[in-house]
């Protein structure tokens, strides 16, 4: 199978170093304001610190994918004697919580690693975290070139038919193939 090189931009989050100050939320909301830096509002930030100071819980979480429905995850994790909700680590903009939604419209927010032209040296939250709880990490990975086997399509279509019925799926396919 063919190998391709892929650049992966990510953060290494050292939660033990977080002092809970939320400077990352401040600068994120400012950077993504229009015009840039014209307003501050942590509720709009694409990185949030899940904090519960008396339980010593400080987890910086970046906004990830939007999901229309809640997941089943209601597990508790105990790490080093501290009890976490499964949601504490989750990056989804999801109906079960207020995190990662525009406060006015409710539209989902997603971290874009401060993509800019010309590109920034590192995302703004990393720059503003003087305690190095957020570290920018770029790595190159060799990955298999994405190949989709006919079998995968078969499984997908079958579940769509299960859910919506053959006719609905056929109609949709017909409409899509005309477009």
């Amino acid at each position: 199978m063919a190998k391709v090189k892929k650049t992966i931009k990510g953060l290494t989050i050292d939660a033990d170093k977080c002092n809970g100050c939320r400077a990352c939320e401040v600068i994120c909301s400012a950077f993504h304001a229009a015009p840039r830096y014209s307003s501050i509002n942590p509720a709009r930030s694409r990185i949030r610190i899940v904090r519960d100071p008396l339980k010593d819980i400080y987890i910086p979480v970046q906004a990830g994918e939007y999901t229309a429905s809640e997941c089943t995850g209601r597990n508790k994790y105990i790490v080093d004697g501290k009890e976490y909700d499964e949601c504490d680590f989750c990056r989804a903009s999801c109906p079960s919580r207020d995190l990662f939604k525009e406060p006015d419209s409710g539209l989902p927010l997603k971290c874009d690693m401060c993509e800019d032209d010309p590109p920034l040296e590192k995302p703004k939250c990393v720059e503003w975290c003087l305690n190095d709880a957020l570290i920018y990490a770029v790595r190159e990975e060799e990955v298999d070139e994405a190949e989709v086997s006919p079998g995968d399509v078969e499984i997908g279509v079958e579940s769509l038919i299960d859910k919506y019925g053959l006719k609905q799926v056929l109609d949709t396919l017909a409409r899509r193939s005309k477009a």
Partner: peptide, 9 residues
């Protein structure tokens, strides 16, 4: 959850 605005950002 409201904005604070800055005059000269």
């Amino acid at each position: 959850t409201k904005d604070i605005n800055i005059a000269r950002p």
